[in-house]
């Protein structure tokens, strides 16, 4: 009945307009940067671009994709993302499955959980971790980017809670058919929880793609920078001390439209997977927050 009152109708219109403006505010900066990236060199450097390109051109994208430094970092990023996601998911699915067993069946469970969860609350910090990586001779290898963060404890708990919610009857049926614990995971749990695993996989993918700090400290050779680190040092901080650029690259990087193009290309994969993420993450987050 309240929605029939005149006051509420007025409120509703104003409220809707405010929220629409607010949501546009969330993507305007992205649209602006996209407009700059498609603009000609002159208008971009003169700061007259708003939300629409002026002198539309693909020039900045051509320059970016012809830059060997950029392409090399792009491949490093793809490599670390694929490798890191594959290893990370295998680890947390295996461990999450084992931890989803009830305490009465699997006595070691709570000890393991504490070992994992404690790392979420306390860590050695930047310097000791750096010294470890360097003592293990992982500096400048892809493993420095893949292994330290491979066990995502939060995601592991999400998977564990998801497995816990799978009806016991399925497991019992598999057991009666002679399947062991490994086979039950492979043939029963995995197929049933594919949507949840795909969601967590996408989150891991995004995490790896976005990671930049490990690249910055563990890669002393800028040729091995993943794309996010490259963007951070070269494009955002404009720190050229670590990288050898030929003069043409240097000139390109001072161009506002080229910078915008590089930012947009780095964000592009995220924008691609975003619709798939959105389809699932609401369920996933609620699953993690409220549970059972």
């Amino acid at each position: 009945m309240y929605h029939k009152s005149k006051g509420y109708k007025v409120f509703n219109v104003i409220n809707s307009i405010c929220l629409i403006l607010l949501s546009l505010l969330c993507i305007l900066p992205m649209i602006h940067i996209l407009a700059v990236s498609f603009s000609g060199r002159g208008p971009a450097n003169a700061n007259i671009i708003g939300l629409w390109p002026i002198d539309f051109t693909f020039e900045s994208y051509e320059k970016t994709l012809n830059s060997p430094n950029f392409i090399r970092s792009l491949w490093v990023a793809v490599y670390r993302t694929v490798l890191g996601t594959a290893i990370g998911m295998a680890l947390i699915i295996a461990a999450g499955y084992a931890l989803s067993k009830e305490y009465s069946y699997f006595k070691g469970r709570s000890v393991y959980i504490w070992v994992f969860v404690f790392t979420m609350m306390f860590n050695g910090g930047l310097v000791p971790t750096y010294l470890l990586i360097s003592n293990l001779h992982l500096i400048n290898t892809i493993w420095a980017l893949v292994l330290p963060g491979a066990v995502g404890v939060f995601n592991m708990i999400l998977i564990m809670n998801f497995f816990k919610a799978i009806p016991r009857e399925l497991e019992e049926a598999a057991y009666l058919d002679g399947a062991g614990l490994f086979k039950t995971l492979w043939k029963v749990y995995l197929p049933v929880s594919m949507p949840a695993i795909a969601t967590i996989g996408l989150f891991t993918l995004v995490w790896h793609w976005n990671s930049w700090f490990d690249g910055l400290i563990y890669m002393t050779d800028s040729k091995k920078y993943p794309l996010a680190t490259y963007l951070q040092t070269i494009v955002v901080q404009q720190d050229f001390s670590k990288i050898s650029l030929d003069p043409k690259d240097l000139e390109n990087l001072s161009q506002r439209s080229v910078k915008a193009a590089q930012i947009f290309i780095t964000a592009f994969p995220i924008l691609i997977v975003y619709p798939f993420l959105q389809k699932y993450f609401v369920g996933g987050i609620v699953m993690g927050a409220v549970k059972e």
Binding site: A95, A98, P128, L131
Partner: peptide, 22 residues
């Protein structure tokens, strides 16, 4: 079950607990 946890456990000890000694 212990075997399934082992890889994650070893990596956690190595990359999260060893630095605590540091």
């Amino acid at each position: 079950l212990h075997v399934l946890i082992l890889p994650a456990f070893i990596l956690t000890i190595l990359f999260h607990y060893v630095p605590m000694l540091g």
